[in-house]
Simulated assay, not measured.
Amino acid sequence: MAPRLHPADNRQPGKTGTLRTFAGSSHRMPTIYFDILSDADRIIDDEGVELPDTCVARQMALELLGQAILDGSRRGTPGVTKVELRDQNGPFLRVSAAVVIEKL
């Protein structure tokens, strides 16, 4: 199995949120989970990270997708890699990319 990737070094396990977006709100920050899915691996995030809004979550998902593709390239693994974001209400965003290796 691939090494566990996590979108933030400052995660705080055990905290849960209540909303997907809450800019200007007094509610707790939502806990967002970043699951990495590829043809070779399935890494389910069971810790999550509290984020201020879905814009930050989207940016982190793109960065995590890039890192997952790099990790897959070291193993020579082509195919589709996805990062699915979910909160307490379920999945709400997916970013994906396809890696194609063609011999010319």
Results as ranks from 00 to 15, higher is better:
residue 46 D to R: 06
residue 97 A to G: 08
residue 90 G to N: 05
residue 37 L to G: 01
residue 41 D to W: 03
residue 5 L to G: 05
residue 2 A to E: 05
residue 98 A to S: 15
residue 59 Q to G: 10
residue 2 A to H: 09
residue 20 R to D: 09
residue 35 D to H: 10
residue 28 R to H: 11
residue 36 I to T: 12
residue 49 V to A: 10
residue 11 R to F: 08
residue 75 R to P: 00
residue 67 Q to Y: 08
residue 80 V to I: 09
residue 95 V to T: 03
residue 63 E to C: 11
residue 15 K to D: 08
residue 53 D to V: 02
residue 14 G to A: 12
residue 93 L to E: 11
residue 81 T to I: 01
residue 9 D to E: 14
residue 89 N to K: 12
residue 39 D to E: 09
residue 91 P to V: 14
residue 104 L to C: 14
residue 20 R to H: 05
residue 16 T to M: 14
residue 8 A to M: 15
residue 92 F to C: 08
residue 16 T to D: 13
residue 57 A to D: 04
residue 23 A to C: 15
residue 76 G to Q: 01
residue 93 L to H: 08
residue 87 D to W: 09
residue 60 M to I: 04
residue 82 K to L: 03
residue 83 V to I: 14
residue 99 V to S: 07
residue 55 C to H: 07
residue 60 M to H: 15
residue 15 K to E: 12
residue 70 L to V: 02
residue 48 G to E: 15
residue 50 E to Q: 06
residue 58 R to M: 13
residue 67 Q to C: 10
residue 55 C to W: 12
residue 86 R to I: 09
residue 13 P to M: 12
residue 21 T to A: 11
residue 38 S to F: 00
residue 67 Q to L: 10
residue 47 E to L: 13
residue 75 R to A: 11
residue 94 R to C: 15
residue 79 G to D: 01
residue 10 N to Y: 10
residue 33 Y to H: 07
residue 36 I to M: 01
residue 31 T to K: 06
residue 47 E to Y: 05
residue 90 G to T: 03
residue 38 S to Y: 00
residue 16 T to F: 14
residue 17 G to D: 09
residue 51 L to N: 12
residue 27 H to R: 12
residue 82 K to P: 00
residue 64 L to A: 04
residue 81 T to V: 02
residue 49 V to Q: 05
residue 16 T to C: 15
residue 55 C to E: 12
residue 1 M to S: 13
residue 44 I to P: 00
residue 74 R to M: 01
residue 51 L to M: 09
residue 58 R to N: 12
residue 16 T to H: 13
residue 103 K to F: 07
residue 69 I to Q: 02
residue 67 Q to D: 12
residue 12 Q to H: 06
residue 100 V to H: 05
residue 100 V to C: 07
residue 98 A to G: 11
residue 72 G to P: 00
residue 30 P to Q: 07
residue 36 I to H: 03
residue 6 H to M: 10
residue 70 L to G: 04
residue 7 P to T: 03
residue 57 A to R: 07
residue 83 V to S: 01
residue 14 G to F: 09
residue 47 E to S: 09
residue 70 L to T: 12
residue 102 E to A: 15
residue 61 A to K: 11
residue 50 E to C: 09
residue 10 N to D: 13
residue 44 I to Q: 07
residue 84 E to W: 02
residue 15 K to I: 07
residue 45 D to S: 04
residue 46 D to I: 15
residue 61 A to C: 14
residue 6 H to S: 08
residue 17 G to K: 09
residue 37 L to S: 08
residue 44 I to A: 05
residue 73 S to Y: 01
residue 90 G to D: 04
residue 9 D to R: 11
